Deep mutational scan, measured.
Amino acid sequence: KHLIERYYHQLTEGCGNEACTNEFCASCPTFLRMDNNAAAIKALELYKINAKLCDPH
């Protein structure tokens, strides 16, 4: 559950690194913003595939 919350935060708030290159992070310049419901679904999907989590900045 904690990991899913981290994915959700990364998708909605980002890691804080303006030069982030993680396509699944709101801080990445090319990230496409999504609403909270879509972010919750995506967080579950990312958890299932063990996607990369950013280190908070």
Rank of each mutant, 00 (worst) to 15 (best):
29 P>G: 08
16 G>P: 06
22 N>S: 11
33 R>I: 07
32 L>H: 07
7 Y>T: 01
43 A>N: 01
13 E>D: 14
35 D>P: 06
46 L>W: 02
51 A>G: 08
25 C>K: 00
31 F>M: 15
39 A>G: 08
18 E>S: 13
29 P>K: 12
1 K>N: 02
48 K>L: 02
48 K>V: 02
30 T>C: 12
16 G>C: 10
52 K>R: 09
7 Y>P: 00
56 P>W: 10
51 A>R: 04
19 A>H: 12
50 N>S: 14
11 L>R: 01
34 M>I: 14
50 N>K: 07
40 A>R: 15
15 C>Q: 01
33 R>H: 07
46 L>K: 01
48 K>Y: 02
25 C>G: 00
8 Y>M: 14
16 G>Y: 06
46 L>E: 02
37 N>L: 03
6 R>I: 05
39 A>H: 04
15 C>Y: 00
32 L>S: 09
2 H>M: 11
12 T>W: 03
18 E>G: 09
33 R>N: 07
55 D>C: 07
24 F>E: 09
21 T>L: 08
20 C>P: 00
34 M>F: 09
37 N>T: 12
17 N>R: 10
32 L>T: 15
37 N>E: 08
47 Y>D: 15
33 R>P: 12
2 H>K: 12
25 C>L: 00
55 D>G: 12
37 N>S: 08
4 I>R: 13
35 D>F: 03
36 N>Q: 13
18 E>F: 05
38 A>M: 05
47 Y>W: 08
4 I>V: 10
26 A>R: 07
23 E>P: 07
2 H>R: 11
10 Q>L: 04
45 E>R: 09
29 P>V: 05
51 A>Q: 03
17 N>P: 08
22 N>E: 04
35 D>Y: 03
37 N>G: 11
10 Q>F: 03
40 A>D: 14
55 D>A: 10
29 P>Q: 07
25 C>T: 00
21 T>P: 08
41 I>R: 13
57 H>L: 10
31 F>Y: 09
20 C>A: 00
18 E>L: 09
41 I>F: 05
47 Y>T: 15
55 D>P: 11
38 A>N: 04
8 Y>A: 09
41 I>T: 12
23 E>R: 10
43 A>Y: 00
55 D>E: 12
10 Q>E: 01
45 E>F: 04
42 K>Y: 06
11 L>Y: 02
1 K>W: 01
44 L>C: 11
31 F>Q: 07
39 A>L: 07
36 N>T: 11
21 T>I: 11
57 H>Y: 13
3 L>I: 10
43 A>I: 00
